[in-house]
């Protein structure tokens, strides 16, 4: 198993004239699970979007490398092909396009044989309790919140990325689903050496998916880092100490992708 490394250094990014990420430094290696926690509007989702290359953000400084290769200049699809994966907070509905359609063209674009894709899909669906019938259905259309998150995890299992960013994977999941999804991600860290960056507001997910390192993101900066024990501390004390929820809203208002219901 080769070792992979995602290195984010000095990353600054803006939406319009508002700077949201104000210098992020973070390294994630194969097999590691890092969690980024933070109040609403701290820039958590922005970080995931900027790393994946979602349009609408301007990177003003810094770099993101995967195994030494700068990815900020690459289009999104090439970042994915290079081994990055983003499980989205709100998986987009794509009418008329099935999961197997997408994964087979993703395989082809990466010059991987799609011959056994059907079997892989079925095996992955089995593993996380995803209904087989949903494999042929339009992506994320008429799926419950839990089904959508299982679907994201299933794609992670099939695409076998090197580094995965899981943006609020726990939202919309019940306890059983949360456990299944967490087991699958953990298995990927062990079997495939997946490196994981978990983005979450609550420590609930971290009860199931053990993080090696926890980072607190506030106002666009990582303001604290520590071991897994930090999750519990944050659970009881909240983000007030980091100037989070108490502050006036500008950062939340500036991030168009922030969860309005969180």
């Amino acid at each position: 198993m080769t070792t992979s490394e995602l290195v984010i250094s000095g990353l600054r990014a803006s939406v319009g004239s508002t700077e949201i990420l104000k210098g992020i430094d973070l390294t994630i290696r194969s097999g590691e699970v890092h969690a980024i926690m933070g109040p609403n509007g701290s820039g958590k989702s922005t970080l995931s979007h900027v790393v994946m290359g979602k349009p609408g953000y301007e990177v003003t400084a810094g770099s993101v490398t995967l195994n030494g290769v700068e990815i900020l200049g690459l289009p999104t699809w090439q970042r994915a092909q290079a081994g990055l994966f983003l499980a989205m907070q709100y998986p987009t509905e794509v009418p008329g396009v099935s999961l197997s359609d997408v994964l087979s063209v993703a395989y082809q674009a990466g010059e991987r044989s799609a011959d056994e894709l059907d079997d892989v899909l079925k095996a992955e669906a089995e593993r996380i309790g995803f209904d087989h019938d949903l494999l042929r259905r339009s992506l994320n259309v008429d799926m419950s919140g839990g089904e959508k998150k299982r679907n994201e995890t299933l794609q992670l299992g099939v695409l076998k990325p090197k580094i995965a960013i899981l943006d609020e994977l726990d939202s919309g999941l019940d306890v059983d689903a949360l456990r299944q999804v967490s087991r699958r991600v953990e298995a990927a860290t062990e079997e495939d050496g997946l490196g994981v960056l978990v983005i979450t507001h609550y420590s609930r997910l971290l009860n199931e998916l053990r993080a090696d390192r926890i980072h607190v993101l506030a106002q666009g900066r990582i303001v604290d880092s520590g071991g897994p024990e930090m999750a519990e501390a944050l659970e009881s004390s909240g983000y007030a100490a980091y100037g989070g929820d108490a502050e006036a809203v500008p950062a939340a208002a500036a991030d168009p992708f922030a969860d309005p219901f969180a």
């Binding site: 979602k54 999104t76 994915a80 983003l86």
Partner: peptide, 11 residues
Amino acid sequence: QQFYLQARGVP
């Protein structure tokens, strides 16, 4: 939709 599919590695 474009971003979602591209983020899966689709050109």
